Amino acid sequence: MSYDNACKYLAERFPADFTRWLLGTETARIRVLKTELDLEPIRADSVSFLRVGDRILHLEFETDPYSKPPIPFRMLDYSVRLKRKYDRDVEQFVIFLQQSSNEIVFTTEYRDRTTVHQYNVIRLWEQDPAIFLDNPGLLPLAVLTKSDSPRTLLERVAERLDRIENTQRRQGVAACTGILAGLRLEANLIRSILRVDIMRQSAFYQDIIQEGRQDEALLFVTRLLQRKFGEIDVVIQEKIRSLSVEELENLGEDLLEFSAVADLEAWLG
């Protein structure tokens, strides 16, 4: 999850860098669009939508080619929804972060008996690192690009990080670099090359840590509830997912005294 969030963070804070890379254009007319469509919520953790001039740039970041529904169908679905909502041409890019030989990684269209829909696929491990090293918003992705020595590549990224003058921007980019480098390098090596203190000062890094705590607390409470009451109603599950870490921890303590699902509903109320 944190890998997707890191990419989303970068795309939405450095949209010009991504537009320059993927579309080969320079424009000041870029606006980040909300990552929700009318029909139902989408996977906001891995998807970014940018309005670039008179078209929509849809970016989807993936570490795993397996998904339900499959990626090709999902790209068709998103394209139709975006056209319906914004009445603009849609440029779609699925960006695979981690090397894979799965056929989906090499698939660029959805096809059935009556429909053909095409989209773009980027396999980062095949990309030249040059453009990534020259754009701050792409720097964290550089370590996943083509290289005989990922360590040397990360060292070059670290040098570029030190050149970012804005402290807040440097912290955010460093945090994303540390997270994404974990897809290719060992944690100890990453810590020895990157300045961990800079990463940890980033608000984005703190959000990721908090999210990890929330995921762990949610999993723990869900397991306890299932053991006590069996399958929980979907509406109740949604209410539980919206709880903060502290609220989940309190629920974990209080549910030991619950004797029926009604007690849980009253607590949530």
Rank of each mutant, 00 (worst) to 15 (best):
S79C: 15
S79V: 08
S79A: 11
V80G: 07
V80E: 13
V80A: 08
R81N: 10
R81K: 10
K83P: 09
K83G: 14
R84P: 05
R84Y: 09
R84F: 10
K85Q: 11
K85A: 07
D87L: 12
V90M: 03
V90F: 08
E91T: 04
Q92G: 00
V94N: 00
I95G: 00
Q98N: 03
Q99I: 00
S100M: 01
S100Q: 01
S100D: 00
S101F: 08
S101H: 10
S101E: 15
N102W: 04
N102E: 11
E103W: 14
E103T: 11
I104F: 02
T108M: 04
E109T: 06
R111P: 00
R111F: 04
R111W: 08
D112P: 07
D112Y: 03
R113L: 15
T114Y: 13
V116S: 12
H117N: 09
H117Y: 15
Q118K: 15
Q118M: 12
Q118D: 13
Y119S: 12
Y119C: 12
N120M: 09
I122G: 11
R123V: 04
R123Y: 01
E126N: 13
Q127W: 05
Q127I: 09
D128N: 12
P129N: 12
P129W: 14
I131N: 13
F132I: 09
F132A: 03
N135R: 07
L138D: 04
P140Y: 15
L141N: 10
L141G: 09
V143K: 12
L144Y: 06
L144T: 15
L144P: 12
K146I: 15
K146R: 14
S147K: 06
D148L: 06
P150R: 00
R151H: 01
L153G: 04
L154D: 00
L154Y: 07
E155W: 06
E155M: 12
R156D: 15
R156S: 15
R156I: 07
A158P: 13
A158K: 11
E159C: 13
R160V: 13
L161P: 08
L161R: 07
D162Q: 15
R163I: 14
I164Y: 12
I164C: 12
I164T: 13
E165M: 15
E165G: 09
E165Q: 14
N166C: 13
N166R: 12
T167G: 10
R169L: 06
R170C: 01
R170Y: 00
R170L: 02
R170S: 01
Q171E: 12
V173G: 13
V173F: 08
V173I: 11
V173A: 11
A174R: 09
C176W: 09
T177I: 01
T177M: 05
G178S: 03
G178M: 04
I179D: 09
I179K: 04
I179P: 02
L180N: 03
G182V: 02
G182K: 06
G182D: 07
L183G: 06
R184W: 01
R184I: 02
R184G: 06
